[in-house]
Computed example of a mutant assay.
Amino acid sequence: MPGRRKPNPPEEEPSNESRDYSVRAVERVCSILNLVQESVDGVTLNAVAKTTQLPKSSAFRYLWTLENHRYVERDTDSGLFRLGLGFVGMQSRHLEVLRERARPWLERLRDEYDETTNLGILDGNAVIYLDIVESRRTVRLSVSNGHRDPIHSTALGKAIAAHLPEGRVREMLTQAGMPGVTPNTITTPDAYLDELGKVREDGYAVDNAENEPDGRCVAVPILGTRLPAAISLSAPASRFAREDVAKVAKSLQEIADQIAAPEERPEQE
């Protein structure tokens, strides 16, 4: 009988020292994201090309692909690249930390004005409410946690959108549409972008019966958290006069600064 064929000896497993499973393209993507993440204002194409040791044309293709998948976004005015909104859904723990940090400040603000206070974050093309501290009054403006509202008709949406690249804002408005929620709602992109310019100038955003027929809301962004978030106070317009908006906005701005500083917490009275 012919002899049984002996199996080939196994190939020698490479040692830990010689093992290298890295993929050059993935390493470059990680380098780009690390660079963008470490920058507050954003990075230039030249900086990305230098870090990755790629020609500018190749670095741009990497950035274009990441932008297409919303992991980076480009400011059309400055040309700087920042982290995009594609990471927001992956940051559930960061969202919870933000909510926990904001809660006592929202409660203090509610008690000061006896009106509903809110914490919202951009989710896709809409604002989602992470936390609501309701007014104790019988007649009040409030929604439930997880509720989604358009960016074009809400103070929260305006406050957040005012600090996004214009190209991204236009894309969001095109995708979501700009329906007239009330007769006062802004319904054209150009008018909305003009409104965002005013928001940046004033430091706060206002919804004057644009999302609710008898509602008024003022909001400010929470800057420095790497999350597109904002806080707001909302009330029936009959109780929240236009002349009180600036005063409330100042309180919101002070609180937004405190939320961005985790070591600070309101004193218990």
Rank of each mutant, 00 (worst) to 15 (best):
A47M: 13
V48F: 13
T52S: 10
Q53F: 08
L54S: 14
P55K: 10
S58W: 04
S58K: 10
A59F: 14
A59D: 08
A59T: 09
R61H: 09
R61Q: 12
Y62S: 11
L63M: 14
W64L: 12
W64D: 14
L66Y: 02
E67C: 12
E67G: 11
N68G: 11
R70S: 15
V72I: 14
D75L: 06
D77Q: 12
G79D: 05
G79R: 10
G79E: 06
L80W: 03
F81N: 04
F81A: 07
R82L: 09
L83H: 03
L85T: 15
G86H: 04
F87H: 13
F87S: 09
V88P: 00
M90E: 13
M90I: 04
R93Y: 14
H94C: 05
L95Y: 03
E96W: 00
E96A: 09
V97F: 06
L98R: 01
L98Q: 01
E100A: 10
E100Q: 14
R101V: 04
A102E: 01
W105I: 02
W105V: 01
L106G: 00
L106A: 01
R108A: 06
L109P: 00
L109W: 01
R110E: 03
R110N: 06
E112F: 02
Y113R: 01
D114S: 11
N118F: 05
N118M: 08
N118Y: 05
N118R: 07
L119I: 04
L119A: 03
G120L: 05
I121R: 03
D123G: 06
N125W: 09
I128F: 04
I128Y: 00
L130P: 00
I132Y: 01
I132K: 01
V133I: 11
E134C: 07
E134Q: 14
S135N: 03
S135Y: 00
R136N: 13
R137N: 07
T138G: 06
V139Q: 13
V139H: 12
V139N: 10
R140F: 05
S142C: 15
V143N: 06
N145S: 11
N145A: 15
N145T: 15
N145E: 14
G146Y: 04
R148S: 10
R148D: 05
R148M: 15
R148W: 13
P150K: 08
P150D: 10
I151P: 04
S153L: 08
T154G: 12
A155S: 15
A155P: 05
L156N: 07
